[in-house]
Structure formats: C-alpha cells, structure tokens
Amino acid sequence: MYENFQRYIDERVALCDAESKLVRSVAVIKKIRKRQYLLQEGDVWKYDAFVSSGCLRTYSINEKGSEHIIGFSIENWWCGDRESLLSGEPSRFNIDAIEDSELVMFTHTNFEMLCREIPAFNQMVNNILNKSFITQQNRINASLSNTAEEKYLNFVKKYPEFALRVPQNMIASYLGITPETLSRIRTQTARNKG
C-alpha cells in the first residue's frame, strides 16, 4: 500500500534516501471498508490523505436529506476537507468509501513539517494544490454554463474510470442533475452512438 504512494512521489520529485525515510516515518496506513466513514459531518478533519487504492466520495446532506456530492477520490488522488483542516472548524462534509479503500495519511502537523524540511516535497504539494484549484474553477464554470448533457459527456470524457466504478445515482448527484435526467442522457447518448 505504501509502495503506491512511494511510486506517486517518485514520479513527481526526486528525494534522497533520508528524505524518503522521513516521509515514510510519519505516514499512517489506514484501511476502510466499503460504506465506512473516513470523516463525518461535525468532526474536525486533521489529516492530509492520499488514496492508495479504492474510491471515496465527499458529500454533504441538506436539510431535506438529499446528498450533494462535491467530489470523488480514487487511486493517486488526495482527499479530505481542506476548510476544516485549515480552520480547525467542524466539517460540513462526510467522506465515505464507495469501495474498500486504503489510504496513506499524515497528521497535518507532520505534513507541514515534511513541506518545511523537504523543499521538493513542498513543491510537489504546491503543484497539486494549484491543479486542484484550477480543477475546481473549471468545475464551477461548467456547472453554471453547461447543459446537463454537456456536464455528463465532459465528466465521462475527463473521468472515464468513474463511469465504470461509481453508481449512476452518485454521478447524477455530483453533476447536480436527477438520476432520471442522467438515465435519459445516457439512453440518448447510446442511441446517437448506435
């Protein structure tokens, strides 16, 4: 499990043996089963978490009991609630496993120490945060500008693995459309291809 994370780092930065050992020494391995929570609304998120295997979702539940999925995380992605992490405030979100999952986690204190002590690690983290910010900007723009069909087609094009791994009702929630609308779009798309 840690080997996946080590490969992820090695593909992005070159660390010396001492730096690699420091990262490994503060890493915590966590396994969670399908439907198990990693974070529940009301708890404070205190980690930087890398998904070594599996699939998770981050979502909120409104006052009517409807779920609003804000993101998915699969292998080689990071997950967590950055707002709760940085503010120390209780989270508004839940994170649970869609599949059995394994994570490499760091307390935020240790993660900040790694960023201070290892400049290459810090640069890798900054690159990840920048890409994440751009992705969120693009998602907001798409959700405001695109039709339901465009949202779905862009989602499948950008994240084809999700279409195979994530239940359709969760994809609909992520896209901000009803499951019925998604079903209609999928049927129409299949007809157009046929």
Rank of each mutant, 00 (worst) to 15 (best):
Y2N: 09
Y2T: 03
Y2D: 03
Y2Q: 08
Y2V: 03
E3P: 01
N4K: 13
R7S: 13
Y8S: 04
Y8G: 01
R12W: 08
L15P: 03
L15N: 05
L15M: 14
C16R: 11
D17F: 01
E19C: 07
K21D: 13
L22W: 05
L22T: 06
S25M: 04
S25L: 07
V28F: 03
K30F: 04
K31C: 09
K34C: 12
R35A: 14
Y37Q: 07
Y37V: 00
L38G: 05
L38Y: 15
L39D: 07
Q40N: 11
E41W: 00
V44Q: 12
D48A: 13
D48E: 15
F50L: 04
V51Y: 04
S53N: 14
G54N: 08
C55T: 09
L56K: 02
R57Q: 13
Y59P: 01
I61V: 15
I61H: 01
K64E: 14
G65I: 11
S66D: 15
S66N: 14
G71P: 00
F72V: 08
I74P: 00
I74H: 05
E75W: 02
W78C: 04
C79E: 09
G80H: 03
R82F: 13
L85W: 03
S87M: 09
E89Q: 15
P90E: 08
F93R: 09
F93W: 12
N94M: 04
N94R: 03
A97Q: 02
E99G: 11
D100E: 14
D100R: 06
D100H: 13
S101P: 07
V104F: 09
M105R: 15
T107Q: 09
H108C: 06
L114S: 08
L114A: 03
I118K: 04
P119C: 07
P119W: 05
A120G: 00
M124Q: 03
N126I: 02
I128K: 04
L129E: 10
N130I: 13
K131Q: 14
S132D: 11
S132L: 02
T135W: 01
Q136W: 08
R139V: 02
R139I: 03
S143C: 03
A148D: 11
A148T: 06
E149D: 10
K151Y: 01
K151T: 01
Y152L: 06
Y152Q: 02
N154G: 15
N154L: 08
F155W: 05
K158S: 14
K158R: 14
P160C: 06
E161C: 04
L164K: 12
R165E: 11
P167A: 10
N169V: 11
Y174H: 13
T178K: 10
P179A: 07
E180H: 12
L182Y: 09
S183M: 05
R184H: 12
R186N: 02
T189A: 11
T189L: 06
T189H: 04
N192I: 00
